[in-house]
Write a protein that binds this DNA or RNA. Structure first.
Length: 390
DNA sequence: TCTGGGGTCCTAGGACCC
DNA sequence: TCTGGGGTCCTAGGACCC
């Protein structure tokens, strides 16, 4: 049997929280939120019991990364400030994120899927697209097979959507959660997709959502009734015609296996806003460790980058970026630090800082020899000197 | 009780080149 | 001697996603 394009979207259910429940089964059925500083793991005592911290005791700037379905009942959702979540569900257990553990389970579930359907596109730690077009079995069989394989090797559940393209597959996987399976064709659009709010479309965020609402467009069906012309008039040629297409379920993007990263970055939000002069020493140390972190990540992944950027967020949440492009790729912490410092000189440092970040982009696979790299390091002051005089 | 950290993609202007 | 058009690179900002 030759199937038309068949794409699956697989989404792990409340992934971080579910991984934590494997470690702390006594929390099953209780409201739990993941977020906050990652150095405060609860410890299991001699007698086997664990002292968990509660959301009500949290002080700081963290956000909820994931909440169990029991916590979501209280209105707790991901991206929400932990202080606000504490208002809604003060007795919920708060666990710090443990990305090492989540990455481990991420590898496990992706490997399990790959044994069944190898054409996988990574969409972060807990999601993938799978191209099923070359498989012979029917969609239900494949999906049940994949869900069982994921459960067998991780003891975790996932939700799967299968549709003729990525856009619809992604919408589908969200329709029946947790542990769901939804299979859909274009013919199901009017009944199943058009009643949904436009925000369910990947690519329509808060800004576009608000603007559409002002035009009286709230559901995907509303959007489908508007012509391409008016949408382009309101949203510009490109985004306008895209809106028109997605409302009709049109999406030709291929499933991309083997995607090279475009940038590697580190950033940190301070516990309190820092001042460039008064907190100079702390800032300088943080700045250096961000550069070292980025350099480490670049080296570990085998990349060098030519463009070094910094990101600053001020007390009032305004964000600015500055970047500089070198004539050669680097993965060296000191080189990155010098270039980043050069960028720092181009921003105002009167207001207190809330966040500092360092990014390296224009990446290339790093095949440069050690000797060549050190020679290039010596070139740097010259390159920066040229940039500075401009 | 404001708003993490890691990313991608798009737009837009100016420089510079042919 | 006032006036092209296309292409690429660099920089800055913003929307959006997980």
């Amino acid at each position: 049997v030759k199937w038309p394009r068949r794409i699956a979207h697989l989404d792990m259910d409340a992934f971080y929280a579910s991984v934590e429940l494997l470690r702390y089964p006594e929390l099953r059925g209780k409201p739990v939120a993941i977020g906050g500083q990652s150095d405060k793991r609860p410890v299991r005592l001699e007698n086997g019991s664990v002292r968990f911290s509660r959301l009500r005791n949290y002080v700081g700037r963290g956000v909820v990364t994931t909440a169990t379905y029991e916590a979501r009942v209280f209105g707790v959702s991901s991206g929400m400030g932990l202080m606000k979540a504490a208002q809604l569900a003060p007795d919920a257990v708060l666990l710090p994120a443990d990305f090492g553990a989540y990455r481990h389970y991420s590898h496990l579930f992706k490997a399990a899927v790959a044994r069944i359907a190898p054409r996988i596109e990574d969409r972060g730690i807990d999601e993938i697209f799978i191209d099923l077009s070359d498989l012979t079995q029917d969609s239900t069989t494949i999906a049940q097979y994949i869900k069982q394989a994921v459960r067998d090797c991780t003891a975790l559940s996932c939700s799967i959507g299968i549709a003729p393209n990525k856009l619809l597959a992604k919408i589908c996987s969200d329709l029946d959660k947790p542990d769901g399976l939804t299979i859909m064709g274009f013919e199901d659009m009017p009944e199943r997709v058009w009643p949904l709010p436009v925000s369910k479309i990947n690519g329509i965020g808060p800004k576009a959502n608000r603007k559409l609402a002002m035009l009286g467009i709230t559901t995907i069906g509303d959007l489908a009734q508007v012509g391409a012309g008016p949408l382009q008039a309101s949203f510009g040629r490109s985004y306008g015609s895209w809106l028109h297409e997605v409302a009709h379920g049109i999406d030709g993007r291929p499933v991309m296996t083997d995607v090279e990263p475009k940038s590697i970055s580190r950033e940190t939000t301070f516990e309190r806003d820092l001042h460039a002069r008064q907190d100079r020493r702390i800032l300088s140390e943080v700045f250096t460790s961000l550069c070292e972190g980025v350099a480490q990540d670049l080296q570990r992944k085998g990349y060098g980058g030519r463009t070094i950027s910094i990101k600053l967020r001020y007390q009032d949440f305004r964000t600015v970026t500055r970047d500089i492009t070198l004539s050669f790729p680097t993965a060296d912490a000191a080189t990155i630090r010098r270039a980043a410092e050069e960028c720092l000189r181009r921003v105002a440092l009167t207001q207190r800082l809330r966040l500092l970040g360092v990014r390296v982009s224009s990446l290339s696979s790093d095949s440069i020899s050690e000797s060549k790299r050190s020679r290039q390091q010596e070139e740097l002051p010259l390159v920066l000197g040229t940039a500075d005089s401009n």
